[in-house]
């Protein structure tokens, strides 16, 4: 494992291209952030406006789900190369998380 770091100096064109790609990606992140803020605002506003709980709860849970997907796939790059196993285990974790929550809100004595 001593020889696993090769220093690869990119050509000027390659470097400029990568840099531009990253800058584009960063603009995408800004847009993601804006969406997150917007979703948060909707959630808080709905609760403050005092709609029926049966309307609000599913919607704010959905909004939270979307935010989490944005975080995972954009900020944490889970769709990127080499994330196959990562995504597999995160989804397994979410599955176990889901059944745990489901069990404890349905089959405990009240």
């Amino acid at each position: 494992m001593a020889h696993d770091t090769h220093i690869h100096v990119r050509s000027k064109a390659e470097f400029e291209y990568a840099k531009k790609k990253r800058a584009d990606e960063m603009r995408g992140h800004l847009a993601t952030f804006a969406i997150m803020i917007f979703l948060t605002l909707i959630a808080f506003t709905m609760v403050a406006a005092g709609f029926s709980a049966y309307l609000i709860v599913p919607i704010i849970l959905l909004l939270a789900g979307i935010q989490v997907i944005l975080q995972l796939y954009y900020f944490m790059h889970m769709s990127g190369k080499g994330h196959g196993m990562v995504a597999f285990f995160m989804f397994c974790g979410m599955f176990v998380a889901f059944i745990t929550v489901l069990a404890l809100v349905t089959i405990v004595w009240w």
């Binding site: 176990v96 069990a103 404890l104 089959i107 405990v108 004595w109």
Partner: peptide, 9 residues
Amino acid sequence: IIWEHLFWI
């Protein structure tokens, strides 16, 4: 019952 669930999960 919460203990029992967490323990057996």
